[in-house]
Design a protein around this nucleic acid. Structure first.
Lengths: 196, 196, 196, 196
DNA sequence: GATGAATGAGAGTTCATTCAT
DNA sequence: TATGAATGAACTCTCATTCAT
């Protein structure tokens, strides 16, 4: 068996166990058993529970930043950028449900993660989001009387709640529901919920 | 010292400790020390860590349900109901910061709290929110092509993110900032962020 | 059972276990079992293996320093001071064999104990010893051409080896043997081993 | 690279690591890393940590016994034999500091080494020393009223303490200091510290 | 009501050793 | 000869909870 295989098996097992039990209640023994490797091998490769967890979380943030940077740099229409961001979260929910569950349950609000470093991660994401909102304002797509960080909170908050509800309810996400969610968020965010 | 005093001191201490360290890392000994009582007494009154935590969380949910029911039953203008809901969260942040921090960090996303009961709490709140949104649609205030639960997620998501950012950044909330937040959420939710 | 009782029982058990197995191989479980208390109680009182060990070692050093200071301050004849020092070690061997075994096996040479603090302990003792030797030189009892620290090493080395051999061989020490040891050390140290 | 090279590199690395961390805290992985080989190779050559340690200690004892036997058999003056013994220890300190540090810290007092075999090693050395002392008495160089084993303890104790102090303080040993140490030990041991 | 001594299951981590390649 | 992945027993320490006083 190749070296990479077992490392990946451990990561996959960790994703499952951290999602199911949360960081605090996840046992390294569970992860090892789930991965089908011995107790010590998890430590051989990852050193500690915290390192293993951080590695997983790191993955998430890097993916998120990559996507955000790509959107920022992209020449797509402003409206499409927002749609891409929403879709990124929904796609991740479909393709990597464990990862996004961990993000929702263990990272985005966890007091355990409220360290300086944890805060910095968020600020970096919000900052990228704000830049896109600012661009939207400058190009005349968005109202200028609402500060970009407020726009960010409202836009991101909508996405996060959609995701959280699905995580909580362990709901499947069909293509159809996905599109409805995108449309709902975009319509309300851009045009408002008020009846014409 | 009256009986009630010590019980309250323990609850207050628990609020602080749960907020500072999170449920998993909070020690009963910490709570007892903070309250200035022996840890036997904490058990005497509250039975277990879980019961103590649930009691606190119960407080939050009951306050939230009361407010929501009051708004539902109220004859206030629809727009004002939404404003009242936003203000409830922001006021709680100002007046009971520990309580809302615990809600944000330990309840609303915590996998620990993802029990059937935890889910039910949320669904009840969302259900109340949906009823208000539905009323808004029926009375002609809100668009009818967006399902009420979607409206709920977007509206509540915006509020929760505002609160979460403040909790994470331990930011103070002045009256002025409070009003700006209310206005930003209301304007985007009702009229959208799109430039005219 | 009084509080002090169990603490003392744990200390006594620790003395035995540390002597029998050495610091590194002593298990906290052994100490608890030997003391007839639960595992957790050892931690309740002493916090960690290291703290428990340090407490024991501290006892030894404090006794040693007290004795040395008393001798330094005493108005006894110089020769008697040396005898008292030798007797202190031999008496401790008889009365607190575990303590002196731990000193010999785990402290006086242990690399584990070669921290800055460990070194300081020794230097303090040697320093007290040197002061006595210096006094002996100044009062005309000892040759002045040998530096006091060399006198210290030779005098103390003789004592320590006597003790170590007994510890290693687990030899009993009768009054008679004790006196012979005192006499041998004193005679060689003061008058030399050379035949007249 | 020749076979012998790697074996030697491992032994040298082991000397360093055992000295720095002590037997209990030395890790086979440390030794392998220090030697620049995989830790499988350490096992390939030496079988176990204990075997590797014993091999090193064996080296020391054999050198010591060889020296002692040579002195016993030698036709040198009695006084010179004692000087040679002292010099052997001091020279080893200069030439093989790791070896003598391990002896001082991990062997001569270590409870880990208080096995039957460990005791036997010592007794053999003391026995050789006693024979020399006895010879000194029989030839009229040493007083006959002090048992040879007592003379041994005092003589050896002086040497060991000099060495130990240097090991503890990681002191360098110049030729000059070496001679002063030899003279101090010889003068006190033979003629006593008492002022004329 | 009130205390804190006492318990012990459980979790993370270490590291000597084995073994397939 | 040489590697380092893989194993798992052993050990320290934590902390919710119980209970005698």
């Amino acid at each position: 068996m190749a070296k990479g295989d077992k490392q990946e098996m451990i990561i996959d097992a960790a994703l499952e166990v951290f999602r199911e039990r949360g960081y605090a209640n996840a046992r390294m023994a569970d992860i090892a058993r789930r991965a089908g490797v011995s107790y010590g091998l998890v430590y051989h490769y990852f050193g500690s529970k915290e390192v293993l967890f951080d590695l997983i979380v790191e993955t998430w943030w890097n993916d998120l930043y990559s996507m955000m940077n790509a959107e920022k740099a992209s020449s797509d229409a402003f409206r499409d950028k927002l749609i891409h961001i929403i879709r990124f979260f929904l796609d991740t929910y479909v393709q990597r449900p464990n990862l996004i569950s961990i993000f929702v349950s263990e990272v985005c609000r966890s007091s355990v993660y409220h360290t300086r470093e944890g805060l910095a991660r968020f600020l970096k994401f919000f900052s990228l989001c704000e830049e896109i909102m600012l661009e939207g304002q400058q190009k005349g797509y968005l109202k200028k009387d609402i500060p970009p960080h407020h726009l960010t909170y409202i836009f991101y908050g909508a996405i996060e709640t959609f995701i959280s509800v699905m995580v909580l309810g362990k709901e499947p996400l069909t293509k159809k529901r996905q599109e409805r969610a995108v449309n709902a968020i975009m319509e309300v965010f851009m045009d408002g919920a008020k009846a014409a």
